[in-house]
Amino acid sequence: MSDVLKKISEPTLRVVGYVVLVVMCMYILTPLLWLLLTAFDPEGGPYLKLPKSITLDNFVMLFIGKPIKGRAGAAHPFYMNVWLKNSFFIASVVLVIIIITASMAAYALSRLDFTGKSLLMTFILLIGFMPSMAKILPLFKLCLMFGFIDNLFGVAVVIASSLLPTQIWILKGFFDSIPRELEEQAWVCGCGYLSTLMRVVLPVAGPGIAVIALLSFLGAWGSFTIPLILIRSEDLYPVSLGIASVFIHNPGEIGLAVDYGPLCALSIVYALPSLAIYYLTRKYLMQIKVGKMEVR
């Protein structure tokens, strides 16, 4: 391998690199290109083509809740604004819960030294490893007890608990890289533990907070299984369930008898908040340090 690579000169390597890059970008972008084109196409279908004319009807349809004249529309009406509102509610509650609980836990894990700490870390990681499908029924029963069925707040709590392990690990990595002296300085200046966390550690760990904010937002915004189990009434559907209610008739029959225009428009509207959050936090994404994974 090394001999072969040595013989390849720098320019050749560069060319090969670019070719692979282009292929990769095509793999990534072609499906998304279809999404973008079809969203503005009055008569789009499950194939890539340039629209003959451009229309915003697909987007309008999502929000007025009924098909536009002359268009087939979907089997079920859209309640896009309701779904978006629900999704936003869930995502923001998850965000708040995760940032508070994960940062407190990660801070304690980062700064406390006690026997069995690595055991606790492994436990936290593994606890999230139980397949979610296997937990459905107990989870349902539990949520029934807590009154979390048909309760957006309850859904958010459950989602937060499922996202928590990874976020704690990531945040601990960030906290570990903050010099202890900063906190000790704050203590000497009279700061209590909570106020040290708020005034010094969190601001310094800003990138870490941004990363877990992004990851937990993405997780909550896109979550499908947990709302599927816990939400019964249609006016509490988040977008993920909304899509399914409109476009999936039976499992395994995706893509049959669907108006692709609104589907793509919906997908784009659905993806926009995620993209916005990514845009805000993109600077910090490359600084993730999970647990002990910083280079040793």
């Binding site: 002296e181 900063l182 000790e184 203590w187 000497v188 009279g190 700061c191 601001p203 310094v204």
Partner: peptide
């Protein structure tokens, strides 16, 4: 008595200035 209540001041070798 925790450091918060000892009314001491400290300068660390690394200075520990708050970067934010």
């Amino acid at each position: 008595i925790p450091p918060q209540k000892r009314n001491v001041s400290m300068v660390f070798q690394s200075y520990a200035l708050f970067p934010h």
